[in-house]
Design a protein around this nucleic acid. Structure first.
Lengths: 212, 212
DNA sequence: GACAGAATGTCAAATAGTTTACAATCTAAG
DNA sequence: CTTAGATTGTAAACTATTTGACATTCTGTC
């Protein structure tokens, strides 16, 4: 969610061009790719594997914000905003990434105004979405907030999907306690919306989950 | 808050240039300037007076999101994002606005890549801020959320300030009930942080409000 | 295949916040 | 100066959620 993935929304031609210019890099499972506070002079595109985005909280526990997969990008926000990395990124499994430097991106923006316009459009859309969420989620009961969060995590998929989050992660994400999540999930399972298993949630019927 | 005001963050030179090209327009107190659903082919800059941004909820009640004043702009997000207006805007008093069309803005982006970069930087910063808020605010008790919202409303001011919101408006904004706001404000007043009056809150000590 | 650590299920008590309801106060319009 | 409507103060009953505590189940590892 939150963590935008602008790259996958780029027009095909630009994606290919960037990829051909980019520097490929590999990381092993569990390796830290970027850390909170690092300088942001570029961004990453995931070619293969998965990356956990989140933050090491008090007590060293990693609080997941999103898990990104193939075709997703991250780090554009800090790069464009010219602020330091605010999140940590860790390789879930062995991953292959492309690195696109801010210098490279700057040149493209210079050469093609259409790219700027597209970027502005995407960023504006995401900001609007974030603002909507701030307004919409506030007074909903925990169960419905959970439903919304799950839907955001599997956005783009149809039918069924799997979310590789522990209930504790979900609790952090939704802004509630693990016990509330546990009860809410049991309720959803009883209604055939999801299936609980160890460390992951299977979403059976995305369409039906939409109406709470 | 939420509602971004990119214009006031533009570099001086660009602001002046845009203003010289813009079309001035006046609205009387209470007049509706834009409506939810309108096409967004430009944005407004406030030259004089105040504009309420919000939404007509169920029962015709206007839910305030922000009150903007001189130098603030609004409507950029829908314009850049190429989606329809999502909020309504109403003139609080007699206002004088500048209208800057998307065609005009497009031309400037085309001519000056530095403007694109600046816009991307500003939007990214605001998106990050919104995401932070989504994460940070979730589990705070209502009192602290209120403190944060008040601070956002008077962002940029030092020492003391006035917020022209009813307690009901604040409740909507914070995402809680009017009674909770009433009690929280009474508590804050007892501690000398704010002064309550009819339809507005005076914030006495912004610095002290920051540490909740 | 046994084990440790991680993740989940579940319960009772405590608490923050909501709802409902009504009284008190303020403001603007006659 | 009155009055109607809007805004605020307050209290009691109710509800959702949290906290804390413990049992159970799962999974990877030796």
């Amino acid at each position: 969610m939150g963590a935008p993935s602008l790259f996958s929304a780029f027009p095909e031609a630009l994606r290919l061009r960037l990829q051909s210019l980019a520097v490929p890099r590999n990381f092993a499972a569990g390796q830290i790719i970027q850390q909170h506070g690092d300088e942001a002079n570029g961004f990453w595109v995931i070619e293969q594997g998965q990356v956990k985005i989140g933050r090491y909280g008090d007590g060293g526990r990693f609080q997941v914000i999103a898990i990104l997969g193939q075709g997703d990008s991250y780090g554009e926000l800090a790069m464009f905003g010219r602020f330091a990395r605010v999140v940590d990124a860790v390789a879930v499994n062995d991953v292959r990434l492309y690195w696109i430097s801010s210098a490279r991106m700057d040149r493209i923006i210079e050469e093609e105004p259409s790219v700027s316009r597209e970027l502005l459009r995407l960023l504006s859309g995401q900001l609007q979405e974030a603002l909507d969420m701030l307004i919409a989620r506030r007074r909903l009961p925990a169960k419905r907030r959970l439903a919304k969060s799950l839907l955001l995590l599997v956005r783009g998929t149809e039918g069924s999907a799997v979310v590789n989050f522990t209930q504790e992660d979900l609790a952090e994400l939704v802004g509630t306690s693990r016990m509330t999540i546990s009860v809410a999930l049991a309720d959803m399972e009883a209604r055939g919306l999801v299936k609980r298993s160890y460390g992951r949630i299977e979403i059976c019927d995305i369409a039906r989950l939409e109406d709470c």
